[in-house]
Design a protein around this nucleic acid. Structure first.
Lengths: 170, 170
DNA sequence: CTGCCATTGATTATAGCTGACCTAGAAAAT
DNA sequence: ATTTTCTAGGTCAGCTATAATCAATGGCAG
């Protein structure tokens, strides 16, 4: 009972592992039946364990022949140095510092020019939106947003680790 | 077997692929018979999968010797792409609609998976930050952020600067 | 005790599909 | 030339099967 969500998570991860592709298609209703729970439980699991921040994108359709597609973003980026990106960012970061970090990551080819652009735009946007806030508050938010975005991208490299853990845990 | 609409869509796409030209001519009635469904089902498929937004134009004629012609539009300049996506987004957009749009852009290879992930994270972030706002206000902000990010991507020059050049330009 | 995570079910939203009715155009009848 | 008829295709409301959301509750760790 206590590990319903965990079991469902494991099931989905296994399915993902088994697939040739980097995604699985499920039917919420079937899954709910398989685990003998209410359908909305599946949404909970997806929300709490397969978010974009965690490297997944969910697509779905309702109605007849509806489905839920869980896509694992898995471009193979080598290089491990970003393990400490979070540390580099810290609790707060200025726009200027953020730019320098992105420049560095692009040089290391951990992100592309286009990805850097996206992140800069997102940061500027929240900067504008929060221009009335204190400087410190804003820089905390920059740090939060930046971490989420970079972690999302870097999570890809954790794939092998996660897989090993999963196999051991079987 | 997945579903009727999907099968019909695939059939049309195959026909398009097979043709020398960038269009196919069909007869609604024949298709309906082939897939054993009511004729209006064909209209549904065309409406939901071959709209102008998705890069297609439909021409048709009624009466004897009626037909439906599906034309695939291909060449689009970056500027047109920008215009187009801006229109698609509109003044406000829900998270769900945004997701669908990103799905579509990825299918058309206008953005990569990683870029899509970044945008989803940015949207969710501002969603969380602004959860106290009215729904409409939030959806306006989603639209604004989404437009900025997509415009940025569509306009970016694909100049393949080498790492050396980048470093020199610092 | 308190806060967070898990679970549930009621309510709402939407894709897919059908069928009844509508319209355009060509050919046949006058 | 005009009217009639016939053969397509078009529209739309509405039903069904799903999925999403949300608010309420339970239960465990700190």
């Amino acid at each position: 009972m206590r590990n319903l969500s965990h079991n469902i998570e494991q099931y989905i991860l296994n399915r993902l592992d088994g697939e040739e592709e980097n995604f699985v298609s499920l039917r919420r209703k079937d899954l709910a039946e398989m685990f003998e729970c209410v359908p909305s439980q599946i949404n909970y699991v997806l929300r709490s364990r397969f978010s974009p921040e965690q490297g997944y994108i969910i697509e779905s359709r309702r109605g007849e022949h509806g489905y839920i597609k869980i896509v694992k973003i898995s471009c193979v980026t080598p290089e491990e140095k970003v393990e400490h990106t979070s540390d580099l960012i810290g609790k707060s970061i200025s726009l200027h510092e953020a730019s320098r970090l992105l420049e560095y990551l692009e040089d290391r080819e951990l992100i592309t020019q286009r990805e850097r652009l996206l992140i800069e735009i997102a940061l500027r946007h929240s900067s504008r939106i929060w221009e009335d806030e204190t400087n410190n508050r804003r820089e905390e938010m920059f740090a939060d947003l930046l971490k989420r975005m970079l972690k999302g991208l870097m999570l890809i490299k954790d794939e092998k680790k996660t897989r090993r853990e999963r196999i051991i845990s079987l």
